[in-house]
Write a protein that binds this DNA or RNA. Sequence first.
DNA 1: TCAACCTGTAAGCATACTTGTTACAGGTTG
DNA 2: CAACCTGTAACAAGTATGCTTACAGGTTGA
Lengths: 141, 141
Amino acid sequence: MKVASRFSIAVHIISLISGAEENERCSSEWMAGSIGVNSVIVRRIMGLLRNAGLITTQQGSADSRVSRSLDRITMLDVLRAVEPDPNLFSIHQNPNPACPVGARIQNVLETVYSRAQVKMEQELERTTMADILSGLKAKAP
Amino acid sequence: MKVASRFSIAVHIISLISGAEENERCSSEWMAGSIGVNSVIVRRIMGLLRNAGLITTQQGSADSRVSRSLDRITMLDVLRAVEPDPNLFSIHQNPNPACPVGARIQNVLETVYSRAQVKMEQELERTTMADILSGLKAKAP
DNA sequence: TCAACCTGTAAGCATACTTGTTACAGGTTG
DNA sequence: CAACCTGTAACAAGTATGCTTACAGGTTGA
């Protein structure tokens, strides 16, 4: 069970873009150096964040910006930007409808899974990129 | 992002074992028919549940039992039985320690991820296999 | 005792997802 | 125009998942 590390990388990218000084330029190559991955990975994930409207980029120029204030970008926004599948839990596809259990298990599981996932998402929604940035600063006295 | 369907299959297996009448035998073949997967898959997952102490089995005989009362088997127990990796979220492994963000992002993310995962686990812990069984019956009037 | 049935498990395979890498078209800037 | 940048395709490699066949060995009832 794994949420792919591109979620973490996406948070890292936004932190770098928003934490950079006004004159500092963040090329994908430079960010790749901070993150520890290939620059293509960075550009791919930036594409996802751009499609989700969280950042703006400019082709040909290392000039990325965050689209709105950090306290209005939640961790859930970032997760949904990089994760195509909204469902955390998988349910087997072919239970036997002729069996009393098989006929109803999907429904029962959906209910339980949905409750659990919502709890997690609520927590991610409470945490914003502004919290992340202040966390990064707090740990650097 | 996916929790493997063996979690759902495990819940299905326990439902079948505990829902069966006293004289009914649940062979892995028969359960496979209700679940809609190969019997080897069923036996493999039963092995995980057995290792976790949730069920007992007897080699050579279709005689599986649940080890304790259903209201003391939580969905979290089942998840942990079938899922080896306890961490839901992945963090990139090589952030640059020379970068202020790279040096601290792992710590910050761990904190946030842990909070979110705990919320989900608490919800799974509140739901027991007894709830699942009564859910299965409730939807069958 | 033996035939039928069962479990436990190894091994091989196909598929899908993730990540890394090279390559290149084309925009930007001094 | 040269240097630098983004956006994206294409391919490779590693890993997880699930399917299937095969088989060793336990169980049970006639």
